Amino acid sequence: MTFVQPITLRDRGVRLEPLSLEHESGLRAAAADGELWKLRVTSVPEPQDTRAYIETALKMRADGNRFAFAVLDDATGQVLGSTSYHDILPAVKRVEIGYTWYRKSVQRSHVNTTCKLLMMGHAFDGLGCHVVGWRTDNFNFASQRAIERLGARKDGVIRGHALRRDGTIRDTVMYSLRAGEWPEARAQLLYLLELRAHTA
């Protein structure tokens, strides 16, 4: 049996459902909101590459090493972006969360925090994971701050680790959160969401 089974997660008006080819046009529109593929430190597909992006994600799901979700507005069904479990290691009960991006209009909203709460909750409480990890570009400082706000600890930097879309070689910053740290991280995420709800 595959470690990560298809599931739909929802909270606070956000829905995560397994990514499929049905999301192609919505995902293309989400990427176009802000021309996100032009960002040097992300993996957002260019419009003409959206179908291939989904097909790659589906192949990785079949291989057992990535499970991609479409992120939707639960009320309207509008596609807001995508996020994934990846580098799935069933033997040690570890997943990483990444391949995450959102249309510009919902960035700096409650959407990312809600998605992380849902995915971390499912990983620790549903899948019984011992560790959840993240990795990001050493120049993606916004991503590093966001990961640190989740309560994750910086494990270190892997130098010369991966190619960027512009052909340069990046260093990768690695983070993780252990199961014993999850209750405190969950309390902080819920606090941040309540704070945002009262100041919105």
Rank of each mutant, 00 (worst) to 15 (best):
T2C: 03
Q5T: 14
Q5N: 06
Q5K: 14
I7S: 02
L9S: 02
R10C: 04
G13E: 07
V14N: 05
V14R: 03
R15I: 06
E17H: 09
E17G: 05
P18Q: 04
L19V: 02
S20Y: 10
L21G: 15
L21V: 13
G26L: 10
A30Y: 01
A30D: 09
A30N: 08
A31C: 07
A31Q: 04
A32P: 03
A32M: 15
G34D: 00
L36I: 09
L36E: 05
K38R: 15
V41P: 00
T42F: 04
S43Q: 11
S43G: 07
E46V: 14
P47H: 13
T50E: 12
R51V: 08
A52S: 14
A52I: 02
Y53P: 01
E55P: 00
E55Q: 06
L58Y: 00
K59H: 11
M60D: 15
R61N: 03
A62F: 02
R66C: 12
V71R: 06
V71D: 10
L72R: 15
D73Q: 11
D73S: 08
D74V: 02
T76L: 03
Q78P: 00
Q78V: 14
V79A: 04
L80V: 05
L80P: 07
S84D: 06
Y85A: 02
D87Y: 10
D87Q: 13
A91L: 12
A91W: 10
K93T: 09
V95E: 02
E96M: 05
E96G: 10
E96H: 08
I97E: 06
G98F: 02
T100Q: 07
Y102G: 09
Y102K: 06
R103F: 00
R103Q: 11
K104Q: 14
S105C: 09
Q107T: 02
T113P: 00
L117G: 03
L117C: 03
L118T: 01
M119W: 08
M119D: 10
H122K: 08
A123H: 12
F124C: 05
C129N: 05
C129P: 00
H130V: 11
R135E: 14
D137H: 14
D137N: 14
N138C: 13
N138M: 09
F139N: 09
F139E: 15
F139C: 05
F141E: 15
F141Y: 11
F141P: 00
S143Q: 12
R145I: 14
I147T: 04
G151M: 02
A152W: 13
A152I: 14
R153T: 12
G156F: 00
I158E: 13
I158S: 14
G160P: 11
H161T: 08
R164N: 11
R164S: 06
I169L: 12
R170V: 05
D171E: 07
V173D: 00
Y175A: 12
S176F: 07
G180M: 10
W182H: 06
W182Y: 13
P183D: 08
E184N: 07
A185K: 06
A185W: 03
A185E: 07
A187T: 13
A187K: 13
L189D: 01
L190N: 11
L190P: 00
L190V: 09
L192E: 15
L193E: 04
L193K: 01
L193A: 01
E194M: 08
L195Q: 15
R196F: 01
R196P: 01
H198G: 09
T199D: 10
T199M: 11
A200V: 11
